[in-house]
Simulated assay, not measured.
Amino acid sequence: MDADPYVAVHFGVSLDTDPEQARDLLLGAYHAHPSILDHPAPSVIFSQLTPDGITLSVTGYVRGPRITGDIKSDLLFEILNRLGAAKIPLSKPQTVMVGRLHDQSRAAFATTTSLLLRSSEQE
């Protein structure tokens, strides 16, 4: 037996966001979409809390698997509009760059770092 088709979206919001407000916004978008089934009802789980933000996952069931891509696209546009209107920022994950610096780049990095450190000591 095949599992019921569903549309799941995962959103990271900043740590200073009220998670209940974000949950209500996500559920509102899912309930408003005509292709999301009422039963089983859409749900939101608080899936992660990290230094980068809060991750909420919302799931809603649909009638068939062939329409999930279009519905997910509709929901992403709607959720981003609602987040923007509510002034809820998305989380901004930290970027870590790992690699080897060439000798010339390494020297420039050391010079820049040294200048920044001296500048901050003078303040």
Rank of each mutant, 00 (worst) to 15 (best):
L75G: 01
V44G: 00
L56E: 03
Q94K: 09
S91E: 14
V96K: 08
P51N: 06
V13R: 03
L83F: 14
A110C: 06
H102V: 14
T50S: 09
P51S: 11
G28M: 01
S57F: 04
L25Q: 03
G99M: 06
M97E: 15
L26R: 02
L56Y: 05
Y6K: 10
S57I: 14
R23F: 02
H39V: 14
P51I: 04
A8V: 08
R23G: 04
I36V: 12
D2T: 07
S73N: 12
G28I: 10
L15G: 13
T68V: 08
Y30C: 01
D74F: 15
F77Y: 12
F109E: 08
G28H: 02
G99T: 13
H31F: 14
G60D: 02
A22E: 01
L115M: 11
L83Y: 07
Q21I: 14
S119N: 00
I36C: 00
A85R: 15
A29Y: 02
R82V: 06
I88P: 00
E121D: 09
G64W: 05
S47V: 13
G69R: 05
V98N: 06
P89K: 13
R118E: 13
Q48E: 14
R82I: 03
R63G: 05
F11K: 02
D16I: 03
R100G: 13
P89G: 09
H31Q: 08
L101V: 08
H33P: 06
A41D: 04
F109Y: 12
G84F: 02
